Amino acid sequence: MDLLSEVIRTVRVGSATGRVIRQSGPTGIRFPAFDGSGIHILLRGSCWLITEDEEPVALRPGDVVLTSSGAAHGLSRVPHPLAGLPLVDMRPLPPAPGPFDFEFLCGCYQLQHGHAPQYLRVLPDLIAVSPDYAAHPELRALVELLKADRSGGAQMGAGATLPALLDLVLVHVLRQWHEQQGAAGWPDTHDPAIAAALREIHEHPEQPWTVERLSEVAGLPRTAFTRRFTTEVGRPPMSYLIGWRLSRGARLLRETDAPLSSIARQIGYANEFAFSGAFSREYGVSPSRFRAGQAAVRGQEAASGTG
């Protein structure tokens, strides 16, 4: 079951932004908490990943930081309290000229409503990965393409290329982190019973699933299934099911013109009213307003050509 593909499909319910940032001086910059997910790729120099509660993590060129669900963090040339770092200016500015201590790519999916996709939400808030570029030269090529895309200012087609490049980089980084961490590092499961239930939820969200039906798919007693599913995935079965249905619904609202009644049926709701109520509780906005907001973002991206 390729859960990475499902992650990427649901990440893009927000707008993609990115730029190259160059930093000099003894300290660094701070990224406030935000609704979304993002990555940093260190291109030159060395720095430290700074968080509120954890020890600083040393980064070297090529290292990647994944912000799975928008946690506050910073990058600094020397270890430094997070609160003391100046806030970053995330306007689409060209890279600063002149000498610098470290340079990195910054890209993110900014969400207007709701939360980061649930598979990213159950990951650690911040993940540092040292990719094996020798074994995966395609990742280095993607980084170079992303750097060129973000270093040249506004270009024709940039609004389309940035999300595609971020998608591919995120897939490679998550896959390598998963390989480095093993089963304990990823919310996917090596438990065949739970994997069977997840597969059915992902492939057939329209089915009238209950804990009883899912436990039958898994071949487990209901209580044992609920306990193992919650341990493996990080959420109880029905909570996960609702989250997955609504993530799929958000993607369909963004990517299609299908009527609400059709989307409701595709993701397991009896009618558009049931879907609208559940969606509004999760995202804080009605499906219609969500769709209109997403269309406005895409229009702005197309007009600016900057992504």
Rank of each mutant, 00 (worst) to 15 (best):
Gly185Phe: 01
Gly36Glu: 02
Val171Tyr: 08
Glu216Gln: 13
Leu145Val: 01
Met1Asp: 08
Phe31Asp: 06
Tyr269Lys: 00
Pro32Phe: 08
Arg245Val: 04
Ile29Ser: 09
Ser286Val: 09
Glu232Tyr: 03
Glu216His: 06
Val78Asp: 14
Gly153Pro: 07
Gly25Glu: 04
Gly62Tyr: 05
Pro61Met: 03
Pro61Trp: 02
Gly219Pro: 07
Ile39Asn: 03
Ala128Asp: 05
Gly36Cys: 06
Gly74Ser: 10
Ile21Phe: 10
Thr306Gly: 05
Trp177Leu: 01
Glu103Asp: 15
Arg30Asp: 11
Glu55Ser: 13
Ser261Tyr: 09
Gly284Ile: 04
His190Pro: 08
Ser280Pro: 10
Asn271Gln: 06
Arg228Met: 08
Arg254Ala: 12
Asp101Glu: 14
Val122Ser: 10
Gln181Glu: 14
Ala154Ile: 09
Arg30Leu: 14
Cys47Glu: 07
Ile127Trp: 08
Phe290Gln: 01
Leu198His: 04
Ser276Leu: 05
Asp149Gln: 14
Val285Gly: 04
Thr189Pro: 04
Pro237Lys: 07
Asp257Trp: 04
Arg265His: 14
Pro79Asn: 10
Tyr240Met: 09
Asp257Ala: 14
Asp132Phe: 11
Arg9Asn: 14
Arg150Lys: 03
Ala148Ser: 11
Asp89Asn: 15
Gly74Thr: 06
Ala258His: 13
Gly98Glu: 12
Arg175Met: 09
Glu103Gln: 15
Gly234Ser: 07
Pro187Asp: 01
Pro237Val: 06
Arg150Trp: 04
Arg248Thr: 15
Gln118Gly: 11
Gly185Pro: 06
Ile127Val: 15
Thr230Ile: 03
Gln294Ile: 09
Leu120Lys: 02
Ser46Leu: 01
Arg227Trp: 01
Thr17Phe: 02
Gly299Leu: 12
Asp101Gln: 06
Leu49Tyr: 03
Gly36Asn: 08
Thr27Gly: 13
Arg60Thr: 13
Ala250Lys: 00
Pro205Glu: 04
Trp177Phe: 12
His202Ser: 05
Ala270Arg: 15
Arg60Asp: 15
Ala295Gln: 09
Gly234Val: 06
Gly84Trp: 01
Ala83Glu: 15
Cys106Leu: 09
Ala193Leu: 02
Arg213Thr: 13
Leu105Tyr: 01
Ala183Arg: 04
Arg235Gln: 13
Gly152Ala: 14
Asp53Thr: 12
Met156Arg: 11
His178Ser: 13
Pro97Arg: 06
Ala196Tyr: 03
Ala158Cys: 08
Ala250Leu: 00
Arg213Val: 08
Ala72Thr: 12
Pro61Arg: 00
Ile127His: 05
Ser15Phe: 14
Gly307Lys: 02
Arg121Phe: 05
Val57Gln: 15
Pro92Glu: 11
Ser304Gly: 10
Ile263Thr: 00
Arg44Trp: 02
Tyr283Asn: 13
Leu146Trp: 02
Ala160Gly: 02
Arg248Phe: 01
Gly185Lys: 01
Ser37Leu: 05
Glu144Trp: 00
Arg291His: 10
Asp35Leu: 10
Thr230Val: 05
Gly219Gln: 06
Ser247His: 03
Arg291Trp: 02
Gly185Ser: 04
Pro99Met: 05
Val7Ser: 13
Glu272Ile: 01
Ala148His: 05
Ile263Phe: 00
Tyr109Ser: 15
Ser24Tyr: 03
Val7Asn: 08
Leu246Lys: 00
Phe229Ala: 12
